[in-house]
């Protein structure tokens, strides 16, 4: 079971290089990190996976973007969540692996229909800790409500969850223990957090039937 931070944004998007973030991630208890837009493996520290984020206004645009080389070469393909129709359409696109930015979408934008499709397709929904860490007041309250709703659907339909720090700096990275504390704010148990942290490994290397070789 690989413990993975599902998204970090290294330098030049942030102030910390990928190698430094990988070293910090290893110290914080992670086995790997998904770097958005980066992929060069650092020498020491946690393993690095390449992530690609797609933000399209319509499902057609998403289909077009997932066929571009940047998305084709990525280990994990993320799509930013949109409205209810967009999310329902996006979860059925084969190349999309994770639906992210769900806290920024409207309430109930990810509903039971999308949840059922996501569970059937093995698509994951990302829980970003950045709103819980960075935001204050009503914005954070709304994010907590959204995450509680997602957790309810996850328990009912069994789709995958991933947890990401969304860190642009080593100052925004959090340890596994701190993540457990933050996720407990919206009712996630320790076992669910462990499972969610291991989900990226399951997305990258999905369970397949045993093949007889030779």
């Amino acid at each position: 079971m690989k413990i993975t931070d599902a998204s970090v944004r290294p330098y030049p998007a942030g102030d910390s290089t990928l190698a430094r973030m990988a070293v910090e991630a290893a110290e914080l208890g992670f086995d790997s990190v998904v770097a958005i837009g980066e992929g060069a493996p650092p020498v020491g520290g946690a393993a690095v996976l390449r992530g690609a984020v797609i933000s399209g206004a319509s499902p057609k645009e998403v289909i077009k973007q997932v066929r571009e080389p940047a998305a084709q070469h990525a280990d994990v393909v993320f799509v930013n969540a949109g409205d209810i129709a967009f999310n329902r359409a996006v979860v059925s696109i084969k190349e999309v692996q994770v639906l992210r930015n769900i806290h920024a979408a409207r309430k109930n934008a990810f509903d039971h229909v999308a949840a059922r499709s996501a569970a059937q397709r093995g698509l994951a929904v990302d829980i970003s800790l950045a709103p819980l860490i960075q935001y204050r007041g009503t914005k954070r309250q709304r994010a907590l409500q959204q995450y509680e709703d997602i957790l309810l659907l996850h328990r009912r339909y069994g789709f995958l969850l991933t947890i990401s720090s969304g860190a642009c700096s080593i100052l925004e990275q959090r340890s596994v223990r701190e993540i457990r504390g933050l996720c407990a704010l919206f009712g996630m148990t320790g076992a669910e957090v462990n499972e969610a942290l291991a989900s990226v490994g399951r997305i990258v290397e999905p369970d397949q039937p045993v093949r007889v070789v030779g």
Binding site: Y11, D15, S16, T17, A19, R20, V23, P42, V43, S169, I170
Partner: peptide, 8 residues
């Protein structure tokens, strides 16, 4: 502030 490593 920037956070780098020696290889960087």
């Amino acid at each position: 502030l920037l956070f780098f490593t020696e290889p960087d």
